[in-house]
Simulated scan of single mutants.
Amino acid sequence: MRRPAVRAATVGVALLATALAGACSSDAGTSAPGDTITASPTSSAPPSSATPSPSKPVGDNTPSVDDGPPKVLGTIATGLAAPWGIGFLPNGDAVVTERDTRRVLVLSPPAYDVREAGTISAAVPLGDQGGEAGLLGVAVSPDFAQDHLLYFYLSTASDNRIVRARLDDGRLGPTSVVLDGIPNGFIHDGGRLVFGPDGYLYASTGETGQPDLAQDRSTLAGKVLRMTTDGRPAPGNPFPGSQIWSYGHRNVQGLAFDDDGRLWASEFGQDTYDELNLIEKGRNYGWPMVEGRGDGAGLTNPQVVWDTDDASPSGLAYLDGHLWMAALRGERLWRVDVHGDHAVHPVDYFVGRYGRMRTVVVAPDGNLWVSTSNRDGRGEPRPGDDRILLVRP
């Protein structure tokens, strides 16, 4: 199939005059500590027919006070093919991975011209067959100015793995393995990478469609991992000799740290509830015994749950007291307020306007970049897809 031309779009003053306002909420929730919020659509989209969650908190459900809805200021790039990971270099360049083409792209300001830096040849793009595997997340080394290293999460013929490569003068060098042996599957491969404020690398994995792996601490499937830059278990990990930081996950595709160093994760449910979780050391998040809130002994409840029609979450970003979560099946961008170690007030925006939303990241200028995923085998591509939107939060 012929690949549409990749184009960069300069975001200028003229675009501000025609910026698209997101749908504003009138039904967000508040809760007391220990409650789980059940998020409901708050736009003009058709209401869900799902049965309300028994975990919906009792009490005030007024929306939070903010400065208005986010706005799309313009388009950074068009003609991309299932962009999955986005990271920013110290000079403001953006690195973007394409899941199925296995290409690593570099977009440079101010025009954000798109250049191919290289291809990760080891990646097997099962996504082009309707699956979820391929070239997934990317993380920029905290010491990039000195080491020029990029970290990638990818699927091979035998496993999921994390590799790294130098980026010099816009060209990607050969990869070396950081961590291999992560179980892979046609679905549920996780794939998000992020460096924490502690300098260690965190990775999300999926249970590959085999639910029991999520509870098995002898495997890296269905976990959040924490490791050194060489792939070894990070000091202070809860299980000796293991990269596992938390377990009992179905398929985490979003990781974000807040200003106080807390780690949040967005997670796909099965048929009933998607989840936003506060990830803490050694905790068990319940899959497959529980989907959503379970209150089981030794299990950690989610902070927010969504009907799977309204979310199917992937990317997650934190900015100025809010978590921003990209929704695939839900075709929208969710904002959730963070108050200490509690998440409240889920509000949805842009419902159905741009199709499936995969990744959301905070750009150096304080705006959000949000990528669509309509060419991932499950969406309905529109002219110019896939694209990266510039969103003012």
Rank of each mutant, 00 (worst) to 15 (best):
F88L: 01
I388F: 15
P41A: 03
P57M: 11
I76N: 06
R335H: 08
I187M: 15
W324M: 10
A133W: 00
T10V: 06
D320N: 13
I187A: 15
G340R: 01
G79Q: 01
G254N: 07
F88Q: 11
D180S: 14
P393G: 12
W84E: 15
G185Q: 13
A221P: 04
E275P: 02
S242C: 11
S26M: 10
D147N: 08
A214N: 11
G206E: 02
T36I: 12
M289Y: 07
P240F: 09
P41Y: 10
H342T: 07
R171A: 12
L15N: 15
L172I: 09
G173P: 00
C24T: 06
G130T: 12
Q215H: 00
F186N: 04
K281Y: 03
N237S: 09
G315H: 14
G292L: 08
D180E: 11
F195T: 13
D310L: 13
R329K: 10
M357P: 03
D320I: 02
G352L: 14
D180N: 11
V114D: 06
D385N: 09
S155C: 04
Q270V: 10
R293C: 14
S218I: 01
V124C: 05
A157I: 03
I187F: 15
A165V: 10
N237P: 10
L255M: 03
R99K: 04
G379N: 09
G384Q: 01
R103F: 03
S48F: 07
I37K: 00
V347M: 06
W245A: 08
R3L: 12
D66G: 09
T219D: 08
Q146I: 10
G74D: 06
V370K: 02
T219S: 15
E267V: 03
A326H: 09
V304F: 04
D198N: 13
V140P: 14
H345N: 12
N284K: 06
G137V: 13
S373K: 00
R387E: 08
